[in-house]
Amino acid sequence: MAADRPHESSLAFARATEEVRAERFRDDLVVTEIDAPGSLAPESIALAGDVRPDAATGESVYGTGRFILLHDPGEPEQWGGPFRIVTFAQAPLETEIGTDPLLADVAWSWLMDALRTRGAEFRAAAGTATKTVSKGFGSLHAEGEGAQIELRASWSPGSAIGPHVQAWAELVCMLAGLPPGSEGVAVLGARKAGRG
């Protein structure tokens, strides 16, 4: 029976990969499969998501994110199972919003709410929310002031992976100012993040 375990493990990752690739997203979010980092787990799949990217450059001034599904049949103790999800979401903000002392807490709560709303089973969630405020000087004076929120999180999923992908997509859009149900609604100007 032990000889079947590697085969079963590969099948489990293949099924999870199919589930990730089968997800569909709102028109505001362009999601593509990208190369996954090879050093984090024996098997992985990664997605990149950009909110309303520019047609010419492919870059988004609204928000961006990454979703990585890791699989390790050795079930690392910290994971509590064979799968782990690692995500990243980032969006520029108005400077006034960037100085809000509750911003990091709100960003984390949006992720937790998105997971619960989608019925995504999870455990061992961990993450950091980073907010930055910047001002350009010298040749970057024209950049003016700006702010940015960045959320990095990981958690171990239950058996269904699709709800986790959808929760991540919702988070990326929320940080960019597009809550659920706002498909096709205009965003009032790109929120500029100053860079130094």
Score class of each variant (00 low, 15 high):
Glu8Asn: 06
Leu11Ser: 09
Glu18Val: 03
Glu23Tyr: 02
Glu23Trp: 01
Arg24Tyr: 05
Arg26Phe: 14
Leu29Lys: 06
Leu29Glu: 05
Val30His: 12
Glu33Met: 08
Ile34Gly: 05
Leu40Ser: 06
Ala41Thr: 08
Glu43Leu: 12
Glu43Trp: 07
Ser44Ala: 15
Ala46Pro: 07
Leu47Asn: 00
Asp50Met: 13
Arg52His: 02
Arg52Ser: 06
Pro53Ala: 05
Pro53Gly: 03
Asp54Ile: 07
Asp54Phe: 12
Ala56Ile: 12
Ser60Asp: 01
Gly63Phe: 03
Thr64Asn: 11
Ile68Ser: 09
Ile68Asn: 10
Asp72Trp: 04
Asp72Ile: 06
Gly74Gln: 11
Pro76Tyr: 10
Trp79Phe: 07
Gly81Thr: 04
Gly81Ala: 10
Pro82Ala: 12
Phe83Gly: 00
Ile85Met: 01
Val86Glu: 15
Leu93Cys: 08
Thr99Met: 13
Asp100Thr: 09
Leu103Pro: 11
Asp105Arg: 08
Asp105Cys: 01
Asp113His: 11
Leu115Val: 11
Glu121His: 07
Ala125Gln: 09
Ala126Pro: 06
Ala129Cys: 02
Ala129Met: 02
Thr130Arg: 12
Lys131Gly: 15
Thr132Gly: 07
Lys135Met: 14
Ser139Lys: 14
His141Arg: 13
Glu143Val: 10
Gly146Trp: 01
Glu150Gln: 14
Ala153Ile: 00
Ser154Cys: 05
Gly158Ala: 05
Ala160Asp: 13
Pro163Arg: 02
Ala167Asp: 00
Leu171Glu: 03
Cys173Tyr: 04
Cys173Asn: 06
Ala176Phe: 08
Gly177Gln: 05
Pro180Cys: 01
Ala186Arg: 12
Val187Cys: 08
Gly189Cys: 05
Ala193Ser: 14
Ala193Cys: 04
Arg195Cys: 09
Gly196Ala: 12
